[in-house]
Simulated scan of single mutants.
Amino acid sequence: MSAAEIDGFADRIRQHRGGMISAWIGIPDATLANHLAQEAFDTVVLDMQHGMWDMPSAANAVAQVRLAGKPALARIPVGDFASASRLLDAGASGIIAPMINSAEDAQAFVKSTKYPPLGERSWGPSLALNHTGLSADDYLKNANALTVAIAMIETRAALEAIDGILGVAGIDGIFIGPSDLSIALSNGDQVAPNAAEIDSAMQHAVSRCRAHGKFACAFAGDGERAGELLKFGFDLVIAGAETAQLRSGARRAINAARRIASA
């Protein structure tokens, strides 16, 4: 797969060309990222907010995912916009920013992820140039289109400000965090990412994205829920974290061995 095809991710998601499914990795191991990228995921997300990635390990994982022929995204820690630009320099195709609660938060996010005239991203994309094969001039001209800035909607304030957030030039799409959103909407009473109230909020978010001509992404705890969210109209969904998939696979193998041995 060519660099142009890999970086076609941004164009594909903006044009809503088929629901995409992504891996989600918090364990800071670039080899693990490469292994999951061999599967039929459309992209791989490195979770730096709740996962254990640091910048060197994340940059290595971006390279390993690219080596496998897939684009890599990264979720930064809350407010860590300096890391956002560094991850783009390392060759990430997009950044997910948590806790974007207002248009002002969205503008600060864009400032670090887009070159002028949209933002003020500083120049230094040495690894991105290597991964894309573009000249410096061509990368500068195309980087804003080749990479995506994704604002997370996961609080009551963010849901109320969704139109303002989507209206910020340089915000390419949103990502719904249903667990945090359920905590917020229940006033801290429960973690219920699959509740009917969350379904309604997510469908509302998709409709607002369509009205603004932008894309919608969401986290799902497993493949079944991911399929439901694709039916809601989400453009990209997570089909569970790697830790859950690892333990589920181990559990199936153990149970199968016990069952056959005792038969």
Results as ranks from 00 to 15, higher is better:
Ser85Ile: 08
Ala211Val: 08
Gly79Thr: 06
Ala253Trp: 14
Glu242Asp: 15
Leu230Asp: 05
Asn60Arg: 14
Asp137Gln: 10
Arg156Thr: 15
Asn130Pro: 01
Ala244Thr: 11
Gly213Met: 11
Gly119Val: 06
Ser248Leu: 13
Gly177Leu: 03
Ala253Lys: 05
Leu129Glu: 03
Met55Thr: 12
Pro28Glu: 06
Asp42Met: 00
Asp11Arg: 15
Ile100Asn: 04
Asp172Gln: 00
Leu87Ala: 10
Asp138Phe: 03
Phe41Trp: 12
Ser200Arg: 12
Cys217Ala: 14
Ser112Val: 09
Glu160Trp: 06
Pro125Lys: 03
Ser2Ala: 14
Ser22Asp: 04
Gln38Ser: 10
His16Asp: 13
Met55Trp: 09
Asp137Arg: 04
Leu73Glu: 06
Gly170Asp: 09
Leu246Tyr: 09
Trp53Thr: 10
Ala59Asn: 05
Leu118Glu: 14
Ile162Met: 07
Gly94Thr: 00
Ala63His: 06
Gly240Asn: 09
Asn60Ser: 12
Ala30Asn: 05
Ser112Ile: 02
Ala161Glu: 15
Ala136Trp: 06
Gly221Ala: 12
Ile238Leu: 08
Ile76Lys: 00
Asp47Glu: 06
Phe41Val: 14
Ile6Asn: 10
Pro116Met: 01
Asp89Ile: 09
Trp24Val: 08
Asp11Asn: 10
Ala201Ser: 07
Ala192Ser: 10
Arg210Glu: 15
Gln15Val: 11
Ile100Gly: 02
Ala216Pro: 15
Ala23His: 01
Asn101Leu: 00
Gly94Ser: 01
Leu67Gly: 04
Met52Thr: 15
Arg208Ala: 14
Val78Arg: 12
Gln107Met: 03
Thr43Leu: 12
Arg247Glu: 06
Ala68Pro: 11
Asn60Glu: 08
Gly124Val: 05
Lys70Ile: 08
Ser179Ala: 13
Asp29Glu: 10
Ser126Tyr: 11
Ile76Glu: 01
Ile27His: 10
Ala158Leu: 03
Asp29Thr: 09
Arg66Glu: 11
Ala82Tyr: 07
His35Gln: 07
Arg14Gly: 14
Thr43His: 14
Ala92Glu: 02
His212Arg: 09
Ala61Arg: 01
Asp11His: 13
Phe232Val: 07
Val168Cys: 04
Thr147Tyr: 00
Ala205Thr: 07
Ser57Thr: 15
Ser186Tyr: 01
Ala261Lys: 10
Phe41Gly: 05
Gly233Asn: 00
Ala151Cys: 12
Leu146Ser: 07
Ser262Leu: 12
Met1Cys: 07
Arg225Trp: 13
Ala253Asp: 11
Phe109Ala: 07
Ile254Asn: 05
Asn255Leu: 14
Gly188Trp: 00
Thr31Glu: 13
Leu127Glu: 12
Asn144Ser: 05
Ser22Glu: 07
Asn101Ala: 09
Pro178Arg: 00
Ile96Trp: 00
Lys214Leu: 11
Leu88Ile: 15
Arg258Leu: 15
Phe215Thr: 05
Ala4Phe: 04
Arg251Pro: 02
Thr147His: 12
Ala151Lys: 02
Ser186Thr: 12
Pro28Lys: 02
Pro56Cys: 05
